[in-house]
Structure formats: C-alpha cells, structure tokens
Amino acid sequence: MTDATTSLLTEHFSYTPLSLIDDIINSINNLIYQAISSLETGLLNTPPERLGFAHAANGSTIPDTDEDGNVIYPEAQLEIENGLHQLETLLEATVDKTFDKFELFVLRNTFKIPEDLMGWIRLKHYENLDLNPPEDAPTAETIAAQRKKLQETKKLNRALKREYAQNEAVIAQLRQILSNNASEPDTTKANEEAPTTETTQDLDLSFLTSSAAARQLRVGAVAGPGTQHTPITTNTTFILSQLPALQACIKELRPKLATLQQQSEDKMEADSKADARREYIESRVRLHLERAGQLAAGNEANPVITGRKIDIAEAQALESVMGLLAEGGSKSE
C-alpha cells in the first residue's frame, strides 16, 4: 500500500486499514482466551478419576480426602494448568503465524487501489468541490509568507502605538509647562529672593523635632509656657563653626598620612630585604657545614653540629688511658 492509498482509505473508513486488521486479530485472541477459560473451568470441575487419575492399588497408602469425602489428587490441578498453558501458547503462535499471512493478503489485495483509479475516486464529501485549483491559488509557501508579514505588521503596529503613547505623554508635559509659565505673573526681585509659601510647605522638616528619637533626645521639648527649645539650631550653628577647623586639620594631616604610608612601605621593603639576606646566609652556612661533614642528620630548624671525627687509633689510645686510670683508682682504694 502506498501513502496515497492509505490516506484515501483512512478518509473513507475514518480509521486506518491496519486498525481494522488489528481489531480482527484481537477478536480472535479474545475468543481463544474465552475458550481456554471455559476449558479450564470444565476440567477443574470434572472428577480426576474420569480424567484418568488414580491412586496406587497396593493398599499400602490411604489417599487424602476433602470435607465431602472425595479423594484429592494434587497432581491433577498441576497437570491441568500446565496442559492449558501449553495449549494457549500453541493457539497464540498459530494465530500469529496465520494472521500475519492474512494481514499481508488483505493489504496487498483487499485494500489495494490501482494507481490508474486513484484520480477517479470521489468520496461523498467531495461533491461540488473543485479539486483542480486555479493557477493563482495560494500555496503553502505563499500562505506562510503572508502569515509572517501579518506578524511583522502587528509587531510594527504595537511599536507605533507605544511610541505614540510616549509622544503624547511628552507633549502633555510640555503643554503643562507652557501653561504654567504663561499663568505666572511677573514678580519683583525681593519676591524672587524671599521663600514662597509653597516651598516652605513642600520642605517639611517637622520630623527633626517631632519624631520619637527627637523626643528621646529632648530636641524641641517645651521648657515652659510659650517657650520652646531649639537645640537643633544651636547644634547646627556649632557644627558649621567647627567645619573650617576640621577642614584645616584634614588639609594638614593629608601630607603626613602620605609620608607615613611611604615610611611604612620603605620599612616593610627593608625588612623583607633583611629577611631574604638572612635566609640566604643561613642556607649557605648550612650547605658549607654539610659539605664539611659538620652537619649531622637532624631537624632542619635545629641542626645537630657534630665534632671532629676520631680515628680508630685515637679511640684505642683513649680506651687504654681510661683503663690505666681505672686501675690506678682501684689500687689507691
């Protein structure tokens, strides 16, 4: 089957041809399972004696019985289950093999539509439809291009609207400024220097005297009837009077700070040079002692300095001297 045939049959059946074949195979499998289940029920309900099961006739053993007195055959149920499983497996394999052939036959013959008939088949919902589009009919490419143009146009439209709103806001602000400038009367120089009531109202410094911290520091507290302290003014005046002296001190200390930093840097550099020279001298001394054999194995931080090496003859002479001294001491005693 070709893709065109599959599409046509799917459109006609409203399902694919393979779905029909799968439904047929599933129906056969369901019939097999029902038959196996019925056969299992019948075999389990049949007395084992009728199926050929029996105990040994020597009479040496007594068979087990159930509550109704029927003889129990444990091997009967096991053999029935094994037999049914083998039968089910055999039927499934046979169905799979047979219906694979059925599927190939149906797809190659029943559901096959010749190529020369594909253009002549008209389904019911094809009526009054012109399946031969004109030359100027839109194609998938042209539709995609138009859709892209539409998206770009919408994007440009949104950008223009946003720009228009921003421009309108700027124009409104400019118009308000122009209207305020036109409505303001000419004032004298004294009025320009004097603070206006609006400025005073905008500059609200009441928190300096009415906040909780101000009350805790007794800033703006009422000292008597009709009298109010103004320590903020006093403190501010004092701080402003001390600013020139503070600036002079800073100006005087700034060169000293630079000199101090330079001296500290020079001292650190000299210390580093002295440490490097000391380490070099110690390393050279240690190397000389190692070469001369005067430095024994030990801790590098606390090296063990050995004395002069003694020959064997000198050691023997010292031993003889010690022996003579020991003999002289024993005789004197």
Rank of each mutant, 00 (worst) to 15 (best):
T61F: 12
I72R: 05
S60Q: 07
P47H: 12
K97F: 11
A57R: 01
A56W: 06
F53V: 02
L91W: 04
T89H: 12
D66T: 00
E49S: 05
D68L: 00
D100N: 09
G69L: 01
L87S: 00
Y73H: 08
G69V: 01
E75P: 02
D100F: 11
L84F: 02
D64L: 14
E67N: 10
T65A: 00
A54W: 06
G52A: 02
T89F: 04
E103C: 07
D96V: 08
E67A: 15
H55Q: 05
T61H: 08
T65N: 06
E103N: 14
I62K: 01
G52E: 05
P48A: 11
T65R: 13
L104C: 09
T61D: 12
G83E: 12
R50I: 10
G52D: 03
G59N: 06
P47K: 09
P47D: 10
E67I: 11
R50Q: 14
L91E: 04
H85E: 15
D66C: 01
E88C: 10
F105R: 08
V95T: 13
E75I: 07
D64Q: 10
F102L: 09
P48I: 03
T98S: 03
Q86L: 13
Q86C: 14
L107H: 04
A57I: 02
T89P: 08
P63Y: 05
E103H: 14
V95K: 14
A57G: 11
I62C: 03
E67F: 14
I80F: 00
E103R: 15
Q77Y: 11
D96M: 10
R50H: 14
L90H: 12
E79A: 10
V95S: 07
I62R: 01
E67M: 01
G69D: 00
P48R: 09
P63G: 00
L90W: 05
L90M: 12
K101A: 06
G69E: 04
E81W: 03
D100Y: 09
Y73N: 00
P48D: 02
I62A: 00
L84Q: 04
E103G: 09
A93L: 07
L84W: 04
L91K: 10
A54E: 11
V95G: 07
F105W: 12
E81D: 09
K101Q: 14
L107C: 03
N70H: 04
A93E: 06
L78Y: 10
D100P: 09
D100W: 08
T89R: 11
P63F: 02
N82W: 07
L78S: 15
D64A: 10
L87C: 09
P74K: 03
L104W: 12
Q86T: 11
P48K: 02
L51M: 11
F105P: 05
I80Q: 03
A56I: 09
H85F: 15
P48S: 06
I72D: 05
E103V: 12
K97C: 08
G52R: 03
P74T: 06
F105A: 09
Q86N: 15
T89G: 13
E81V: 00
V106T: 08
H85R: 15
I62Q: 04
L91D: 07
E81R: 07
E49L: 07
I62L: 00
